[in-house]
Amino acid sequence: MSANIAVTGAASRSRAARRNRRTRTTLEAYLLIAPSLFGFVAFLVAPVVIVFVLSLFSWNLIGSPQFVGLANYRRMFTDSQSWHALLNTAYYVVLNIPMQTVLALLLALALNRKMRGSKLFRVVFVLPWMAMPVALGVIWNWFFDPRSGIIDHVISLLGFTGPNWLTSTTWAMPVIASVNVWQYTGYTMLFLLAGLQAIPQQVYEAASLDGVNAVQRLFRITLPLLRPALFFVLVTNVIGSFQQFDTVFVMTQGGPGQSTTTMNYYIYQQAFQLFHAGYAATLSILLFAVILVVTFVQFRYFRKRTIYDFS
């Protein structure tokens, strides 16, 4: 934008020419975004519009949909399971995000210095991100099996008895969160590492002259300058966590009881196991609204505290 102004404003051209240029820019811009816009409208917006319409219907997918007005919305507010699922989702986010972000930050700090093998570590830490969810379920269920799993085996070697991870209503959700921390910490670390590498070395050099110690350096220099990267990571990870589905789907299918039924999994259950497509659509809108609010709050919070321009 500034470039355009610089170019057009420098020479005193006629207003018509400027308007002409603006029209051309607009045309070019729309040509450039046309393919994405097409895909966006046809395969993202259209389905979402249909979801909104569906939320006004009762439909088992087979028969013809029945218009029910706001009945699905009324049901949502009285359905204790939907609130339970929302709470589970919040619990999951609270377990997952801090653990993942702090671990990723520590890893990034460790790998940000010149050291032997840092490249190898980097690759190894990102490997879990590439794991295929379908296969992961089998493997992790082995790990957490109370009788033959390696985790309880190690615990028993230390002289303790491990809990029944996946069949315990207390432990199943922490297990799901841990598996996700395992899977995404390396991926998150990449973004934070990149952020760290962008911090100019001179800043640290200046600080060391001032006699700043390591802890002060972390909290006064590194973290503030890392804020933009942290922001990106938090916004996208929180959105992703609110939509947690894969791990629950392959490991616990929402159980035991309702203990790992996240909102997105509850939506799946309603749509594809109980075939309440209309109600599932309504629940999606609720989840969408929740994510929108949470993201908005994050934007407000970070914008106040960072020079980084996000729009």
Binding site: V51, M263, Y268, L283, L292
Partner: peptide
């Protein structure tokens, strides 16, 4: 980089779509 009418709403429209749970859109899709 390009300044064109409708840029902001369009961009935020894209971003908002990131927040839509994709499970149920499988049916319309």
């Amino acid at each position: 980089r390009l300044d064109f009418p409708g840029r902001e709403p369009l961009f935020w429209g894209f971003i908002a779509m990131m927040m839509v749970p994709q499970i149920v859109t499988l049916i319309p899709l």
